[in-house]
Design a protein around this nucleic acid. Sequence first.
DNA 1: TCACGATGTAAACGTACGTTTACTTGCTGG
DNA 2: CCAGCAAGTAAACGTACGTTTACATCGTGA
Lengths: 191, 191
Amino acid sequence: MATKIDPRPRDADRTREAILQAAQQVFAEKGFAAATIRDITARAGVNQSLVSRYFGGKLKLFEAALEAALDARLMTDLPKAEFGKLIVARFADGDGRVSPLPMLFRAAADAEARSVAQRLLHERVLEPLAQWIGGADAGVRAARLMMISLGFFTYREQLPLAGFAGAVDPDLRRWLEDEFQAIVDNGHVRR
Amino acid sequence: MATKIDPRPRDADRTREAILQAAQQVFAEKGFAAATIRDITARAGVNQSLVSRYFGGKLKLFEAALEAALDARLMTDLPKAEFGKLIVARFADGDGRVSPLPMLFRAAADAEARSVAQRLLHERVLEPLAQWIGGADAGVRAARLMMISLGFFTYREQLPLAGFAGAVDPDLRRWLEDEFQAIVDNGHVRR
DNA sequence: TCACGATGTAAACGTACGTTTACTTGCTGG
DNA sequence: CCAGCAAGTAAACGTACGTTTACATCGTGA
């Protein structure tokens, strides 16, 4: 028999990364409580015990996965001039990355995961967002942005209704674009 | 020893109702997966096996509880002229009833409960809402109303941030009122 | 070379859950 | 008065989970 070439030689960093990526997917799909370590590690192709070894448990893995997902800048990398169109396109059509938003609010069912999500949402999303928006009422405008985003995601991915699971209704899309654009412009919807 | 007066004589209907009310509370607080039958029945003061006996299982109990919570009209009982102010007051300040919205989206973590929530949300909330709003684009406007409501609840109760858990910021409140009012008026925000 | 730590695995453990079963208690119609 | 059914209970069952443990395997520095 030919010498077996192991396609995945022993590499702790690579294994850690594989677990982390699988965790991002599974946590985003199923939420914290419904996601199982057996599912995550199976998707990563590694043994289940490695989660405890490398991350210290399920909650710590969730925290690491959420933080990694939030590492990619979520909104503040877009040009303000066309923010509305671009952010709706990113949310509605996807851009290939795993969005951290489903992870954020699907985690809320579990009390421990919720407190982690709260802290990270505040530190990594809301504060940078308010800074990026700027101005006196930046906090309120960031909150509005967050509320609409969460509502959109909840409505679209969490409770997808008939006729809404696919493409977004053009009128609804235009309203979303206007709202998002108004928030970064001056807080008022221009119509 | 004096004769013991049982404060809760055998009464299947009363027991059923006690379970149903406890279920509404616990499901709203913890979501479907995190809520346990033992917790619900303990709060109702009855044996755990009665859930299977009276409702046929946890999922059926959830369906019954959600349907009962949705029985109270959620939005369409308010006068359209002051809809914005009143609906925000109901959402932000509460009106004593158990709101079905937390149940709705906290259920979304579980796949089976989610499909139940989807169907009931559509049948019992969105369709009556669109009918109540009326007009050609009633569907889109109902969707906007639902998105903002879900976003508000998610942001407020699910991921309560520092400074947002208590009273709602006056500016944010005004924005919410305007948005809600505009949806029932003509779909456009008047400013 | 080879012992030893790093890496990975399989199996077992303890726990908590939803559900079912066997049983007890209380009421009521004839 | 009492048989029979409704109502309620306690305990057990089967399962799935996160975690831990004991063991196997690989690579590498002295």
